[in-house]
Design a binder for these strands. Structure first.
Lengths: 350, 350
DNA sequence: TTGAAAGCGGTACCAA
DNA sequence: TTGGTACCGCTTTCAA
């Protein structure tokens, strides 16, 4: 058979992985005594190959420790098997859970995660440049995208699913927890329980979810003929403390309900109320949060909050991106999930 | 000049990005009236190119929105600009911080993160198969690797840096927080303050850091002529509660110091002690943790713990992997960092 | 079913 | 400095 004469380009195929990362399909082909094409087919589902050659190839592959090179196949198929995940703030306690769920579910569908964490929701452009360079099959984005940025996705035909955000001025595939509805539940419960003097601590100014939650709460309060005091925070523990401090001062100590835009700030506020203001919770002050992160359920806090159905939301995001990778022309779709009230001990609700 | 005759393979170069992901270097070349090689050079640092053509190429590139294809260049250069990050349990509260630091620092050095989260530290083989397929430049691993797995890294010449783990039976580049030294500080402080009846809650059986911390504490106690009761947990909040419950029963209520293998369990134990056992902390019982995660510092817990210097550790991991990507033959090196005692209110220390 | 061959989009060597 | 060209390792026609 004179396999020794087999060539690749103008080099004998016997060269190859000695000083490289690993064996190539040519090495396997030679080892199994078949053509390189045959090796390739063995690793692609639904290719016509006889069971005989298939098993010989697989044996050779196992023996050499061959793994198809995803970079090479990504180049020719234009499918990298990569999805970019953009997350603004991993220290938020909410996002680690989301990220863990996303990677697990994507891995189960044979997709890898290219992770990008953003310092602010603003420095996205540099990050997106990298996303384009890597020819990802799609992107799941938990950060604010401008219309221009969204247009880039469409123009490059890279499907994108927004997580807890909407396209602004544009209809984009997204999965959300209904912030307004969640706040309505909280406000209604608080008002029905007799609260009248409300304070709100918002998240960062450029945060989309914060805006949604705050206006959701404000509108519902207005429906009840009530107003509220507002201070802005950064979604972190300290913001909860300083926010409550500020509101307490501004209200002259007559605040009786505090709505925090996320759990972390609610936790900070609870500590401030108990330890600095020496208030009994929830008798003297009701505090509510949003997200339903694990620490919110800890005995020392038991935050009354709205739990986002993270499992269902990430599953939705993953299946939406997969569908759109398969068919880039699927119409935009927004999937909204209701949050679930977790009645803790930090607030009196009717 | 008859550029229309320029060919690529046997196709006119005018074809191309209309139905693809983006323009190629050929498109830019045509647009700028130069060869494709010239375009390529413009995007590689330290290539000889005249400022004139350079600026024309860059103008054309900008106009077309050209970004060099990282997949293609990864194929030929065998540098993908990717580092795999393997993390066992993102819900640990400690790892999100590590991950955020790692991605930020790697991005600053023009490296992207391919993220893999592991369900258990055991299902690594399937994950590693993916790592190999993507020809990553290196890997940072916060999970247990067997000798066989470590050998694969060496054989494929993919540099690896272990995070808070050592190579077992093999010398591997790694960055660690000194668990034993940290536990020594805690044990010494507790013993000096008069504690004599110790309990320990370990992490999962397959966790390396847990083993390190537990044996570190046990040995130091032995040095003081003391023993301890041991129960095993899962590094989570509930394990802290159930662990303390079990130890309290086994000790007949005469436990006076509890050493938890991480902060999360310490927090659970604190809640159990206060709310179930109705103990005054730290008078009736001292509880210590390990890690120094953010919630440990919250007012309601103020866990006495050892803070790992995450910033310095991740910086070390990143610079070690970068060095080894540049030179795969660098000798293994273990960089160990001392933890810092955070005296909270959960324990009496001398 | 099988193998030969033409790319995928770059990089890098080479001669001009 | 520049353009031509041979690859990187795989997928995918197309004939045999």
């Amino acid at each position: 058979m004179n396999r020794g004469n087999l060539k690749r380009g103008n080099r004998p195929i016997s060269k190859s992985h000695t000083n490289h990362r690993g064996p190539t399909s040519y090495d396997v082909a030679q080892h199994a005594g078949v053509s390189q094409s045959a090796v390739s087919r063995c690793f692609r589902p639904g290719c016509s190959i006889s069971t005989a050659t298939r098993s010989r190839v697989l044996a050779a592959a196992r023996e050499l420790g061959y793994q198809p090179n995803a970079v090479a196949s990504g180049l020719i198929t234009r499918r990298t098997g990569l999805v970019a995940v953009l997350i603004s703030n991993l220290t938020n306690l909410y996002y680690p859970e989301v990220l863990a769920e996303l990677t697990t579910r994507l891995a189960a569908r044979d997709i890898r995660v290219l992770l990008f964490t953003l310092q602010a929701e603003s420095d996205i452009d540099a990050t997106l440049a990298q996303v384009w360079r890597y020819r990802v099959d799609g992107a799941i984005v938990a950060a604010r995208l401008s219309q221009v940025q969204l247009r880039d996705f469409r123009q490059k035909r890279v499907p994108v699913v927004l997580y807890n955000r909407f396209g602004e001025g544009e209809y984009v595939a997204s999965v959300c927890c209904d912030s307004a509805a969640g706040e309505h539940i909280l406000v209604d419960g608080l008002v029905a329980a007799g609260h009248r003097s409300f304070g709100i601590i918002s998240g960062p100014d450029d945060s989309y979810v914060s805006a949604q939650r705050v206006t959701g709460a404000q509108r519902r309060l207005a429906d009840h003929g009530l107003t509220s005091l507002l201070v802005s925070g950064q979604f972190d523990y300290d913001s909860g403390k300083s926010g409550l401090r500020a509101l307490w001062a501004r209200s002259g100590g007559k605040l009786d309900a505090l709505i925090c835009a996320n759990d972390l700030m609610a936790i900070g506020a609870i500590d401030c109320a108990r330890n600095e203001l020496l208030l009994q919770l929830p008798e003297a002050l009701s505090i509510v949060g949003f997200d339903g992160v694990a620490p919110a359920a800890w005995d020392s806090y038991r935050v009354t909050t709205i739990r986002q159905p993270v499992g269902r939301m990430t599953e939705a995001a993953v299946s939406m991106i997969i569908e759109r990778i398969a068919d880039a022309d699927l119409p935009p779709e927004v999937r909204t999930f209701a949050g679930m009230l977790m009645s803790g001990g930090s607030a009196r609700l009717a």
